[in-house]
Design a protein around this nucleic acid. Structure first.
Length: 105
DNA sequence: CGACCTTGTCGTCATCCGAG
DNA sequence: CTCGGATGACGACAAGGTCG
């Protein structure tokens, strides 16, 4: 999906689009952009900031959990591979022995 | 020793998808 | 349709290794 961190801005309305906060230095946050009333816009902005903080925190934890599960899944697969390799080896041995036995008849 | 490369981890964003 | 969780993709950063 070639994200390239570029702001295709599909962000939801309530979501101060990401970018801004990524780089506070360039963010236009605390500047009163349009001539909206200071009180309302500030309130909305604080609310939005809070919502965003919550969302980021939850997503951070979700990402941790997701990575943990992925590691566990990979470990499981590796265990299974090892097991199947052992079984395969045992079966090959058995086959070899049976062939030898059969040849002597 | 410093410059560069590799690998692992983390936080964030975008997107998908199921639940309500 | 909206919301929120899960996850792939990306960039930043740190630690360790390699080479001139």
């Amino acid at each position: 999906m070639a994200v390239t961190g570029d702001e295709s801005d599909t962000g939801t309305a309530s979501d101060l689009s990401a970018h801004h906060l990524r780089n506070p230095a360039t963010s236009s946050f605390c500047q009163s952009e349009e001539g909206t009333s200071a009180h309302d816009s500030k309130h909305l902005t604080e609310d939005a900031i809070h919502k965003r903080a919550i969302r980021l925190m939850k997503n951070r934890e979700a990402a941790r959990e997701c990575r943990r599960k992925k590691k566990e899944y990979v470990r499981c697969l590796e265990t299974r591979v090892a097991l199947l390799e052992d079984q395969n080896k045992a079966l090959m041995d058995e086959l070899r022995n049976l062939k030898l036995l059969y040849r002597h008849h």
